[in-house]
Amino acid sequence: MAHKWGLVVDLDRCTGCEACVVACHAENNVPTVGKDQAAIGRAMQWIRVERSWEGDFPNPKVRFQPVLCQQCDAAPCEAVCPTYASYHTEEGLNGQAYNRCIGTRFCANACPYTVRSFNFFNPSWQKPLNLQLNPDVSVRSVGIMEKCTFCVQRIKSAEIQAEAEKRDLKDGELTTACAQSCASKALVFGDLNDPNSEVSRLASSNRAAKLMGELGTKPNVTYLDRGAWQDAKNS
C-alpha cells in the first residue's frame, strides 16, 4: 500500500524549545543567513516555532506552535509553479525539485503558511563549517526556493533499506529530524495510510485540527489542541 506521510503536532506537549529548528538546520543543510540578512526578514527555517501572546501582566498567556510545510493535499503552491518545481509526489508530499526551480517565488506567495524559504544569495558555510553538511541532501544555491521535505532523504533511505530486506516499513522505523529531536514528543511522524500507526491514532483525536483548515488546503500536518487541566479526561 502506498504511504501517505503525515505529522501530528501536539500543542499540549510542545514546550517551544526549538530543538526541532536546529535539528532541521543540521539535517537539511538549511543555512544560517547572518545578522544583516536576518534583520530584513530573510532568516531561513523550514520549521519555525510561532509564539502568540494573549492578555497582559499579571495574566499573560503564551502559546507555542511549530509551523512547517503542511504538505497539503490541495496545495496552493503546486498549481502556480510554471516549471513543476513544486509538484505533488507519488507519496503525497509537496515536492520541491530544486534543479527545476527558476525562482519565480510564486509558490511562496501562494503558500498561506509562509513556510517556504528562498535563497536570496548563495548560502555560505565558512570553512570548515561546510563539513557539517549532510551529504544526503543537496545544498541549494542562489535563486532556489526550498522548504520542508518531511526529510525525504530519510524516507527514501528507509524505503531502500526495506526494499533491500524485502519487507514493509514499520511504524516508528522512520521519522523526521524534527520529530526525532523532540524531547516532549510533541511531533509524531508516520504513515497516515497505516491505521495502526501512532500518527493515524493521534490524527483522529478529538483535539485534532488543521492549521487554517477553512482554506481547504487539506494539510497532512495535524495539530492537537492544547486543552486545559480540567479537560484532560475528555480527550
Binding site: Y84, Y87, T89, E90, L93, G95, A97, Y98, N99, R100, V137, S138, T149, V152, Q153, K156
Partner: peptide, 10 residues
C-alpha cells in the same frame, strides 16, 4: 521504476 522527481532530486 518511478520517475517521480523526488526519486532522484532532493
Amino acid at each position: 521504476v518511478s520517475v517521480d522527481c523526488d526519486t532522484c532530486h532532493f
